[in-house]
Design a protein around this nucleic acid. Structure first.
Length: 472
RNA sequence: GCCGCCAUCGUCUAACGGUUUAGGACAAGUCCCUUUCAAGGACUAGAUUGCGGGUUCGAAUCCCACUGGCGGCACCA
């Protein structure tokens, strides 16, 4: 059996989408699970849509998630990805387009390039006629026009009344199309760049990709690729289409309803391993219902599980759950260091370290830290409506008791407070809630006595006094 | 409009055509723990497997039709 080779082929037109991360992950795991190779190829043949720096961002992201590629041009001792715009210069795409032309499987298109507004019109026309009028233009005539300096594009010539089909290894079924329904797509643009269709087929063939794994949204263009593989005389790779990830609100996962790029999730304080574990289970499932996998474990188990064929809905709550799990797996030191970008500016490092054990079980993502522990670093803004009617006296007396404490330690503090509550016959819950609000400005906090131990006697007293004053 | 894909609890899913009173996880609810919120533990509820027909001794599992969802139809990828 020949080597398994998969690839991830993003276009650098924006941030890495979680759906793309999944495609990359599955292609990577598929190859790795069989001792194969994984390749990264940047499909940047539409110069206008490319965003400077986007490609580098994608490399960086993949590496953060542990997805690294095994091949490519050597640059400074490591592999660079294959880049289509660079390959254009070698003339490969043009060469194969001309081969198709020669074989009668493509033709020059003399239509003037359309503006975006006209595309809609074309779309309407497609409903009636799939064939381009240029298919009948004499090739000699077209070549004469090119000699005169005109730039002509090249379209695929689709045969009539044939059937094309392939076996989808993810869907596990034969899928076929009547050629009469296949569009005569553009292959080579007037700027000399290939379109996606020519680009993928030529490169997948030349790079000897054994298994093409891509999103379901590519399924409709597969018949075109099938034709190209055939006419170019390339062996057909195995092709498999992954599910589309759906938005809870319906339709494909979209930005409107929240974050979709890996950058955003990371910035929000989701851990790479949590995102990765979550995304593994979106479109793939093991037989034994296991849920926790590291990347290595995923690779080992990949073949034993199965790729889903029904489109899943993106379940954010489940991502939160995974993140909580991985957050709690961190040591306090690790968590403190991860929290660096989420603590208030200029926050005291030692103070942050002390608060970590208190917040660890209470945050679902790193960005929650500030909301929960902000009062350690800045004076709280207190809404007096949060206090109960008994708050005034309680705070004053609590301050008196705490002011007398010699050793500022948890046991001493708790003892003093408990005695006070008993003596005054207060309700424990009522007292602590008022106390909590006075210290933090919030009804939701880490354990409050632990918190004031960290906060220190001076700050604690001043906050109590301030709150009491406010209630006068 | 045309072409294609899909269909099990709210969500993600498990279940060689028979061991299934359809299992697990997230979410929800109840209880325990508890000075709040979490975390943790225990438990509950939730799916006549979209609908209708077949095939079969037997169907969530196979076939057909319907309905619904999704995707694609650019000199974009």
């Amino acid at each position: 059996m020949s080597e398994v080779r998969t690839r991830f082929a993003p276009s650098p037109t924006g941030f890495l989408h979680v759906g793309s991360l999944r495609t990359a992950l599955f292609a990577y795991a598929f190859a790795k699970s069989q001792g194969g190779k994984f390749i990264l190829r940047v499909e940047d043949t539409d110069c206008q849509r490319c965003i400077p720096g986007a490609a580098e961002k994608i490399y960086e992201m993949l590496k953060i998630f542990g997805i690294d590629w095994d091949e490519g041009p050597l640059v400074g001792g490591s592999y660079a990805p294959y880049i289509q715009s660079e390959r254009v210069r070698t003339g490969v795409y043009k060469k194969y387009a001309e081969q198709l032309l020669k074989g009668g499987h493509a033709y020059y298109c003399c239509c003037p390039p359309e503006e975006l507004e006209q595309i809609e019109e074309r779309h309407e026309r497609k409903r009636i006629e799939l064939r381009d009028p240029c298919r009948n233009v004499d090739i000699q005539e077209a070549q004469a026009r090119i000699k005169k300096g005109e730039k002509l594009a090249i379209r695929l010539r689709v045969p009539e009344n044939e059937t094309v089909s392939y076996h989808d290894f993810v869907l596990k079924k034969e899928i076929s199309w009547e050629t009469n329904c296949i569009d005569e797509v553009m292959l080579l643009k007037t700027d000399g760049f290939p379109t996606y269709h020519l680009g993928v087929v030529v490169d997948d063939a030349l790079m000897q990709i054994s298994h093409v794994i891509r999103g379901r949204d590519w399924l409709p263009s597969t018949p075109v690729h099938l034709l190209l593989f055939k006419y170019l005389g390339f062996p057909l790779p195995q092709i498999g289409h992954l599910t589309d990830i759906l938005d809870p609100g319906g339709g494909k996962l979209s930005k409107r309803k929240g974050a979709v790029s890996c950058e955003e999730f990371l910035a929000d304080g989701y851990l790479p391993e949590a995102i990765l574990n979550f995304i593994m289970l979106v479109g793939w499932a093991p037989k034994d219902n296991r849920e926790l996998f590291t990347l290595e474990e995923f690779i080992i188990n990949f073949q034993k599980g199965s790729l889903q064929i029904a489109n899943p809905v993106f379940n954010r709550k489940k991502l939160d759950w995974f993140n909580g799990i991985y957050l709690r797996k961190k040591t306090d030191e690790e968590l403190a260091s991860l929290l660096k970008n989420y603590v208030p500016d200029g926050a005291n490092v030692a103070l942050v370290n002390q608060t970590v054990p208190l917040v660890k079980d209470r945050i679902t993502k790193l960005s929650d830290y500030r909301l929960l522990a902000g009062f350690f670093f800045e004076e709280p803004k207190i809404d007096r409506a949060l206090f109960s009617a008994t708050a005034g006296v309680q705070l004053i007396k609590a301050a008196e008791v705490l002011g007398k404490i010699k050793k500022w330690e948890k046991v001493e503090i708790e003892e003093g407070l408990k005695k006070l509550i008993e003596k005054e016959k207060w309700e424990t819950g009522d007292f602590f809630m008022n106390f909590r609000v006075a210290i933090s400005g919030s009804k939701i906090t880490p354990p409050i006595t632990d918190s004031i131990v960290i906060l220190g006697q001076k700050t604690t007293l001043s906050r109590l006094q301030q709150a009491a004053k406010m209630l006068e």
